[in-house]
């Protein structure tokens, strides 16, 4: 890695902060997707009509 000069702390923290923020966002998006998908399949199993509209289970 190249020398970042006297303000290295700020540069590194900016990148770390952005990476943490984005990693959090990705993790939350995936978690939310998994949670909703599993709840959907659980409810569909209990659904009296057992009707699965096309496309909800990609």
């Amino acid at each position: 890695m190249i020398d970042l000069g006297p303000h290295a702390v700020f540069i590194i923290w900016a990148y770390i902060g952005v990476m943490l923020g984005i990693a959090g966002l990705i993790a939350w998006t995936l978690f939310d997707a998994r949670r909703t998908a599993s709840e959907l399949s659980r409810l569909e199993a209990r659904d009296p009509r057992r009707q699965r509209p096309a496309g909800t289970t990609p």
């Binding site: 998006t29 909703t36 998908a37 909800t56 990609p58």
Partner: peptide
Amino acid sequence: AMHTEVKRRRVMTL
């Protein structure tokens, strides 16, 4: 997130 939201609406309907 849009896909998740579509599923969430389906969950709410169910």
